[in-house]
Design a protein around this nucleic acid. Structure first.
Lengths: 203, 203
DNA sequence: GTCTATATGTGGATAGAC
DNA sequence: GTCTATCCACATATAGAC
């Protein structure tokens, strides 16, 4: 039994390596531009072996998306437990900040565009949908609480706030500012958090 | 001579039709997902004919991007001349609003991602760069003026404001809210202009 | 399960007749 | 300039030996 368990563990490690590569390539080039050959080369295994683990390119990407959502969920739980007294709006800011850090690290895949093959798969992929729903529900509660506390504009539908947060997680402005090279990573993140919550207008 | 001029005019009209199709498909599916076959089918001509007008898929897309920038430039000029007394910040809001309307109409191509084949072409395509620079300079002046007037946060680098405006022009939140179907087009635009300038935080 | 080698489909681009 | 027919590169996916 120990032998079988060991093999399974090796497999899990390999699949983790695969998913990590996919995650990075997905963030770097997007789903359409990423090729399965690249993934195989990056992981260092043959393409056919990839298909033994994941039956299609879409499901390969879906596994990476699931992993990102799980990292997000872990962060949400940690934040909730580590600082239960933190005002909801500050939790939301921490989430945005975390997303931007992940994006800076090249590990945040961009949102699948409305009519992509990936999106179709994801919309029928329960593991993805479940985690997406959990993330949305948790954030939704924080948003409502932040509105009740008077820290987030209560005249904005909570749904709009949620979608805005999701969009800011992959904001292309980060890449442009980073490429400009005249700000540190921390400054870029600060600027984006400010424009997200404070807007462009003067207070 | 009249005959030649007529032919040239017919060609121009056809090229306009091509560029319009490309523009729409570009907005709908993005550069990578758009195929030249689709474009040809949409215009109603053979693919080989397309290549007589534009030597590559990239330059085909570039022509569409140039056209969008020219529409934007025309809007900027109209706005400047029609209401010279309008506060700069309101001009900026009008620009965002216009971009969102164009996006709602399915005519706003999304920003080319950092490492796309299209981006490489655009960065060496003078007609595109010239117009992009003109748009940026005009908006830059308005931004500085709006900051001087105390209407736009003067502690934000003007450059950051500019990039943010560009990003909001293609904000994916619009598509999601529109797809949700519980807001009118005007409500969606109002919400996005509000979150862009006012931010998520309460005032 | 991993490999090499290949099947199959598709997209960008072109040849050549009209 | 427009068409039909085709080339060629490349990407997803699979066959079959080990």
């Amino acid at each position: 039994m120990a032998k079988v368990s060991f093999r399974e563990q090796v497999l899990r490690v390999r699949e983790d390596a695969i998913v990590s590569s996919v995650n990075r390539l997905l963030a770097e080039k997007g789903f359409e531009a990423m090729t399965v050959d690249e993934v195989a080369a990056d992981v260092g295994i043959a393409k056919a072996s990839l298909y033994k683990h994941f039956p299609s390119k879409e499901l390969l990407a879906a596994a990476a998306m699931v992993k990102v959502l799980e990292r997000a969920l872990a962060f949400l739980e940690t934040t909730a437990k580590a600082s239960p007294e933190l005002p909801p709006v500050d939790r939301l800011k921490a989430v945005v900040r975390w997303c931007l850090e992940v994006q800076l690290a090249g590990e945040m895949p961009s949102l699948p565009s409305q009519n992509s093959a990936l999106r179709t798969t994801l919309m029928g992929h329960t593991p993805y949908l479940d985690r997406l729903m959990t993330v949305s529900e948790t954030l939704g509660e924080w948003i409502v609480a932040a509105q009740a506390a008077g820290d987030v504009d209560a005249t904005l539908p909570a749904e709009v706030v949620l979608y805005t947060l999701f969009a800011r997680a992959c904001d292309p402005v980060l890449g442009v500012l980073k490429a400009g090279g005249q700000y540190t990573d921390e400054q870029v993140i600060d600027l984006l958090v400010r424009t997200c919550f404070g807007g462009l207008a003067a207070r």
